[in-house]
Simulated assay, not measured.
Amino acid sequence: MKKEFVRKRKTLGSYVKKFFILCFGAFLYAVGLETFLIPNNIIDGGVVGISIMAASLTPISFSVYLVVINIPFLYLGYKHIGKTFSISTIVSILLLSLWTEYFKPVPQVTDDFFLAAIFGGIVAGIGVGLIIRNSGSLDGTEIVAIIMDKRTTFSVGEVVLFFNIFILGAAGFVFGWDKAMYSLVAYFIISKMIDVVIKGLDESYAVMIVSEESDEIADALMHRLGRGVTFIKGMGAYTGDPKKVIYCVVTRLEVDKLKDITIDKDENAFITINPVHDIVGGRFKKKSIH
């Protein structure tokens, strides 16, 4: 009973934490939209961009369009992706609609289009990144992209880009082609900030090393980089000889040092390096590189 209570308490705590992060992400995105982008007729891609243009052409507010246009996409998400994703997305969209109404009376920060695109993109991108990192979304086109990714040869990024080419192009007819180009700048910055939030500023890399000197290399990596090292049993396909394959995770700044350590011990070592988006648990603490 005690373990079950602790488990339920942890689950409740994780839901509360997730809600506050989604709320803060929607808050930041609303700040970027209402105080930088929308007052300067600069749009983001996806449903948000469609909603901004529709609100500028009609007396209906942006927040209403945001909710209404996303409804059919939310239904698709629930049917084809899952309940957890759909609930997080619904909460994120409702929070964004509330925050945008709250910030609507707030005066714009700048009327310089270039500054608005840059700083609006930075703030909005951080907000969207926080929401995506917590399994939510604000854009129905992403839901369509995820579904198409499963059923076609196109990736999520390619489908989203396809939609946004038309949406950002439409901004040229609604607000003028100069605003469409500023919107493209904002969209690019938002995309990059999303990557920063999701991947982190200090990117990590998973490394696999095949070498005859695996013991010496592993010892050097543990003592000079302070990294935990795991041996994976392998076998040479040609020779049939057993191999100790080294597996470890390092930061971007440690990659070159890892290469130097490895080549110093075995210049014929085979090294593969792949980016890691997230790390949970394990011994991943930093020591001084020496």
Rank of each mutant, 00 (worst) to 15 (best):
V174T: 08
S191K: 01
S155Q: 13
A180C: 09
A218Y: 00
V196K: 04
I167W: 07
F166Q: 03
S214T: 06
M222P: 12
S214W: 02
I190R: 00
I165S: 10
L225H: 00
I217P: 13
Y187A: 14
V160W: 01
F173Y: 15
A206P: 07
V210L: 12
S214N: 12
I198H: 10
E212V: 02
K179Q: 13
F154G: 07
R224H: 08
G176S: 12
S137L: 10
V128E: 06
M208C: 01
A180Q: 12
E216F: 01
V156P: 05
I126M: 05
V229F: 04
F119W: 15
T152Y: 12
F173Q: 04
K192P: 10
R224M: 08
S214H: 09
A116R: 06
V210T: 11
D139L: 14
L138T: 11
V185E: 00
Y187M: 10
S155V: 11
S137W: 02
V160G: 00
M181N: 05
V128A: 11
G125A: 04
A124V: 12
I132M: 12
R133D: 09
A170N: 03
L130Y: 12
A170S: 10
A117Q: 07
V210W: 05
A170W: 03
I189K: 06
S214L: 02
S155L: 10
Y205E: 02
R224G: 00
K150R: 15
T152V: 08
S135F: 09
S191V: 01
F119H: 01
A116I: 10
G169Q: 08
L161A: 15
S135W: 02
A186I: 14
V144L: 14
R151S: 10
N134M: 05
E216S: 14
L221P: 10
Y205T: 03
M148W: 10
R224A: 01
A116E: 08
G120E: 06
